[in-house]
Amino acid sequence: MSTLLISDLHLHPGAPAITEAFLAWLDGRARDAEALYILGDFFEAWIGDDLLDLGDADPTGTAPLAARIAEALRRVAQAGTAVYLMHGNRDFLLGSRFAEAAGATLISDPCVVTLGDERVLLMHGDSLCTRDEAYMAFRAKARDPQWQAQILAMPIPERLALARQLRDQSGEANSNKAEDIMDVTPEEVHAALRAHGVTTMIHGHTHRPAVHELELDGAPARRYVLGDWQPERGWEIEARPGEPPALRDFALEA
Rank of each mutant, 00 (worst) to 15 (best):
L11R: 03
A21F: 03
D32P: 00
P16V: 07
P110L: 05
A45I: 05
A149Q: 12
G197A: 15
L214I: 08
W235V: 09
L94W: 05
V189C: 01
E20K: 13
E100T: 05
L5W: 12
A99V: 01
G95Q: 07
D58F: 13
A153W: 06
V76P: 00
A163W: 02
H203S: 07
G48S: 04
L160E: 03
A33V: 03
D117F: 11
G40D: 02
E243I: 03
G197F: 04
L93C: 08
D53W: 06
Q148I: 04
A134R: 14
M182A: 09
E71P: 01
E232A: 13
A21V: 09
W235P: 05
E71L: 15
W25S: 02
P245L: 05
L54N: 01
E236F: 06
E20F: 02
F92E: 01
G48D: 11
M154Y: 02
D58S: 06
T105R: 12
E236W: 08
Q78R: 14
R90L: 13
V112T: 14
G227M: 15
R167T: 13
D32L: 08
A63D: 08
A219F: 08
L94M: 13
E236D: 07
R119E: 10
L214R: 08
A101H: 05
H12Q: 11
P64I: 13
R68L: 10
E71V: 10
E100Y: 00
G218C: 10
P241M: 09
P16G: 09
R143P: 00
R164D: 15
E232D: 13
Q150S: 10
D126I: 02
A72G: 11
G218T: 14
A67Q: 15
A153R: 14
P110M: 11
G61I: 04
L93E: 05
L115M: 06
W46P: 04
G242A: 15
K141G: 01
D144Y: 07
L73F: 14
G227F: 05
R240F: 01
A221Q: 12
G55K: 12
A210F: 04
L36V: 12
G204L: 12
Q230K: 15
